[in-house]
Design a protein around this nucleic acid. Structure first.
Lengths: 188, 188
DNA sequence: AGTTAAATGTTAGTCACTAACATTTAGCGG
DNA sequence: CCGCTAAATGTTAGTGACTAACATTTAACT
């Protein structure tokens, strides 16, 4: 059940955490400090976020992305299908860009331990794409290669976006990243 | 100072850890158990390996790889330089393939938390390659994209190798992985 | 306003990992 | 073979992320 109270508490944790992370760094900030600043107990923190890094790392877009990949013409190479699928999905996702998104990404880009946390999420997305490709008859290894390479390029663009000038859009950077993986002479 | 005693202890820890990981899984195995099985103290474990996952995850090849990338013709695209550099470096690295390598990789492939640990190492390698490309005048984002995409494909091949039939060599799989990132019609 | 389920608090614990200091052990010269 | 010394190990005590079980409060809805 999603009650208003839950949302309020969640928002307060998020505010407190982002603030502390930016002021003292991610590693130097303890969950206890976040809980204190949010006026709650450490236990309550973990009821809203399964781990400390979950405050910064969340991406529930896996099914959407996998579907977009699956919707690409099956006669293309796995890499092309993944590439075009990601570009398509990008259009559906970026509208959500709220103001805190950039703060989050900038923080993630700074800490190696956080990038590890991101990689867990990416791993799930990769698996979703891979499964979808394999279901269409692609060899599992080829599928995993295509998915992981495209996602790695996308992630590189995402992290760069965190510290890019504010007039640079995420969409631009991701397009540029995926363009590098395009077969020579492709236009999209 | 590398004394024989140090090497013995290190080997005993490694044996005990691999054995326990394979029998009970990585997450279900505690450092205390490893220390007990190796006849040492938990503290001593951490003097030989900085973290629990360091027993399985180690790759000191960064400078070698970065150099191989830098040695590729500078008029190629960043992606091509990275791709060819990795293929070159592969020849210098794979001879080290000892019997436990496959056990290690197979274990890593199974646990998400371990793949996160791998990604920390990969991250360092990516940075090394990126720096090298940037030093030659490549745009930082383009460099990061090329490095991360190529490494992601390589990692996918590595993980697949862990559970591949024993007559499949790592070299074959990596070549296949990187071939997918080649411009259309390339031969190497 | 009262009921009740959802949200929070409390307590006690595990596990990875660290710091400071004490103790043992192995490798070395005599 | 013996002692000396530095390297290796042990001990103790602690921090921080995270969990389980149970008690308590709070807010949504009638």
């Amino acid at each position: 059940m999603v009650t208003p109270r839950t949302l309020r508490t969640r928002a307060r944790i998020l505010d407190a955490a982002l603030d502390l992370f930016e002021r003292q760094g991610y590693d130097a900030t303890t969950v206890n400090q976040i809980a204190d600043a949010a006026g709650i107990t450490p236990m309550t923190f973990f009821r809203h976020f399964p781990t400390k890094d979950a405050v910064l790392v969340t991406d529930p877009y896996d099914p959407l992305i996998a579907d977009a990949v699956g919707a690409q013409p099956a006669d293309l190479s796995p890499l092309e299908r993944t590439r075009l699928g990601l570009l398509t999905a990008l259009g559906d996702i970026t509208p959500t860009e709220d103001t805190t998104a950039r703060r989050r990404v900038a923080l993630v880009a700074q800490s190696p331990s956080l990038r590890a946390a991101v990689s867990v999420g990416t791993d799930a997305t990769q698996q979703a794409i891979t499964d979808r490709l394999v279901a269409d008859g692609t060899d599992p290894l080829d599928a995993a290669i295509a998915a992981s390479a495209c996602l790695a390029a996308t992630t590189a663009a995402l992290l760069a976006w965190g510290s890019a000038p504010s007039d640079v859009t995420l969409t631009d950077l991701v397009r540029r990243a995926l363009a590098q993986l395009a077969p020579a002479g492709a236009t999209s």
